[in-house]
Simulated assay, not measured.
Amino acid sequence: MNQPRTNIIDPASMAVSAEDRVATYDWAALNTDLDSFGCAILPKLLTADECRAIAGLYPDETRFRSHIIMARHGFGKGEYRYFKYPLPDPLAGLRTALYPRLAVVANEWNERMGLDERFPGDHASFLQRCHDAGQTRPTPLLLQYVPGDFNCLHQDLYGDIAFPIQVAILLSEPGRDFTGGEFALTEQRPRMQSRVEVVPLRQGDAVAFAVHNRPVKGTKGNYRVNLRHGVSRVRSGMRHTVGIIFHDAR
């Protein structure tokens, strides 16, 4: 179902719609990266002004449905807040615009892994599937780290229905706003040691990555690998990230 939007950015800075900015990327190349490495970078998905405006929402409790202190749950050290509906622009627009591009990859992955589930072509239809299953709480979130904070390796699964790819956007500038805090993705292959991918991001860059499983082509066909993601220790400054998860939660 479509959700209403609330602007947080001066409309003049939103001259390029979410659909138009998503369409500018070479999706054939991005899909190849997702297939090869389990992740793909979308440079400058948000402007610096948009990044600062979204990060600036963090103290405003009226924008969020819950506040998580990671250490209380063994998730690491740091904190994050889940947005409530309506999501702020440009996040609402990007969630809608990114989904159809990634659904193509998700459906191909499920076919290769021998899974029956297929994802609809538009995000509204997928959200309706989540809501029919009792998953109605929005999952996009805003994370904040200070020196010593980190995020343990994890998977963002919030119910029986889960979209297999999500997007994280770095809102702070490495080397200026913070040091450390690298995004890392680990991949566990059968009977092999885990592979680590450290993803270099600048302010406004997004990374699309596998949430749980993805297929890898071997000598005897495709096999399934398990992925987790996390953030290394922040050494100085403050780091903000926004996460766009496409399924809703129970």
Rank of each mutant, 00 (worst) to 15 (best):
Asn2His: 14
Thr6Ala: 08
Asp10Leu: 03
Pro11Trp: 14
Met14Gln: 09
Met14Tyr: 02
Asp20Val: 07
Val22Arg: 12
Thr24Lys: 15
Asn31Ile: 07
Asp35Arg: 12
Asp35His: 05
Ser36Lys: 15
Gly38Tyr: 07
Cys39Met: 04
Ile41Asn: 05
Pro43Glu: 08
Lys44Ala: 05
Asp49Trp: 06
Glu50Cys: 03
Cys51Met: 14
Ile54Met: 10
Leu57Glu: 12
Tyr58Trp: 10
Arg63Asp: 02
Ser66Glu: 05
Ser66Val: 04
Ala71Ile: 00
His73Arg: 11
His73Pro: 03
Phe75Thr: 01
Gly76Arg: 14
Gly78Glu: 13
Gly78Leu: 13
Tyr80Ala: 03
Asp89Cys: 02
Leu98Met: 10
Leu102Lys: 01
Ala103Gln: 15
Ala106Gln: 11
Trp109Leu: 09
Leu115Asp: 11
Cys130Phe: 12
Asp132Trp: 02
Gly134Cys: 05
Arg137Asn: 13
Thr139Gln: 04
Gly148Thr: 04
Asp149Trp: 10
Asp149Met: 06
Asn151His: 07
Asn151Cys: 04
Leu157Val: 15
Ile165Arg: 07
Ala168Gly: 13
Leu170Lys: 01
Leu171Gly: 01
Leu171Phe: 02
Leu171Ser: 07
Ser172Asp: 05
Gly175Arg: 14
Phe178His: 15
Gly180Asp: 10
Glu182Asp: 13
Glu187Lys: 09
Arg189Gly: 04
Met192Tyr: 00
Ser194Cys: 03
Arg202Tyr: 00
Arg202Phe: 00
Gln203Lys: 12
Asp205Arg: 07
Asp205Val: 09
Ala206Cys: 06
Ala208Val: 03
Val216Met: 10
Lys217Val: 11
Thr219Ser: 15
Gly221Leu: 14
Gly221Ile: 11
Arg224Asn: 03
Leu227Ser: 06
Val231Glu: 01
Ser232Glu: 10
Gly237Val: 04
Arg239Cys: 10
Val242Gln: 03
Ile245Asn: 10
His247Thr: 05
Asp248Val: 05
Arg250His: 07
